[in-house]
């Protein structure tokens, strides 16, 4: 009977989990193999480190890598920092709180490209923001906000798109803390900040890590925001990868960038999640 049950479970898992593992596994396999010189569209397959050497040695690659890592860290941490106070504020329903949370979460349902376009209009050289700033006399001439060198446009778009996601996860976690537990903390002498540091933060650390990981990965692999609003003097990893593939079909080098991007996404997000839990848990030690 035991093996029949096992077989049944495996059969049930195959169309869903099985397909996922097969597909993601083979894509990963192809990427890794291509980066070492296999699966060539033209020419002979042979093992070689040449593509890795070429890409890792280029200045463009290291700039891309650190740029994407920077955007991902800022997007992940920024979104969580913005979302925490709002989640705590919206913990208990009050009149209008549902409307607020619906409006705040609206960007979740706006596709990335549309979000880019919407804000390009607003922050354009002759857009509303610049006209407003000049009208009230803060600046004399328009400020460059799109394709700016500091990547503020991209950071802004990332926060606009990802804060609602962090809010979604954190609201759920914060709401699952009972009123009495928070009341008990107050009663035992904990003020607002102590309640956050010693009760709310440790009890929501898992939701926060999930938000950090997913936002980090999404922002590290960003293409749409970078292409439309990003600085022109540096490419994001995804952009660089597409560029290598499209110009002269440098698939093997694109594969190197792709594998590096996956490594960045995996380790970057895990490191971030680990650091955040260490920081938050230090709240329990005095």
């Amino acid at each position: 009977m035991r093996w029949r049950r096992t077989l049944l479970i495996l059969a049930l898992l195959t169309p869903g989990l099985g397909v996922i593992l097969l597909m993601i596994g083979s894509v990963f396999y192809v990427a890794v193999m291509q980066s070492f010189g296999y699966y060539n569209l033209v020419g002979e397959d042979s093992f070689s480190l040449e593509h890795w050497e070429k890409v890792l040695g280029s200045k463009q690659f290291s700039r891309s890598l650190s740029y994407s890592a920077y955007i991902a860290v800022v997007a992940a941490i920024g979104s969580v920092i913005l979302a925490y106070p709002i989640a705590i504020w919206l913990r208990r329903p009050f009149r209008g709180s549902l409307a607020i949370s619906a409006v705040l979460k609206a960007p979740l349902f706006v596709p990335g490209l549309v979000a880019s376009f919407l804000f390009l209009n607003v922050i354009a050289f002759h857009g509303v923001v610049n006209q407003f700033l000049m009208w009230i006399g803060i600046t004399d001439e328009p400020i460059r906000m799109q394709n700016d060198r500091g990547a503020w446009g991209v950071v802004f778009l990332q926060l606009w798109k990802n804060m609602p996601f962090a809010l979604l996860l954190l609201t759920g976690a914060v709401q699952s803390i009972s009123d009495e537990v928070l009341d008990a903390a107050r009663d035992l002498g904990a003020g607002s900040f102590a309640r956050f540091r010693k009760v709310i933060a440790p009890l929501t650390v898992q939701a926060m890590q999930a938000a950090l990981i997913i936002i980090f990965i999404g922002a590290a692999g960003d293409f749409a925001f970078q292409v439309t609003a990003g600085p022109t003097n540096v490419q994001s990893m995804a952009q660089y990868m597409v560029f290598l593939k499209d110009s002269f079909g440098r698939w093997n080098q694109a594969a190197v960038v792709g594998v590096s991007l996956m490594i960045l996404a995996l380790f970057g997000s895990l490191i971030l999640a680990f650091i955040s839990s260490v920081v938050l848990k230090s709240g329990n030690k005095w």
């Binding site: 869903g16 989990l17 996922i20 593992l21 597909m23 993601i24 083979s26 894509v27 990963f28 192809v30 990427a31 291509q34 699966y39 569209l41 990981i213 997913i214 990965i217 999404g218 590290a220 692999g221 293409f223 990893m237 995804a238 990868m241 597409v242 593939k245 698939w251 694109a254 594969a255 792709g258 991007l261 996956m262 996404a265 995996l266 997000s269």
Partner: peptide, 20 residues
């Protein structure tokens, strides 16, 4: 493991899926 497709960057998936 069912969450895997969510954590692979979209363009990596796209490019090497097309290659596959």
């Amino acid at each position: 493991a069912t969450l895997l497709p969510l954590v692979v960057p979209g363009f990596v998936l796209a490019i090497f899926f097309s290659s596959l």
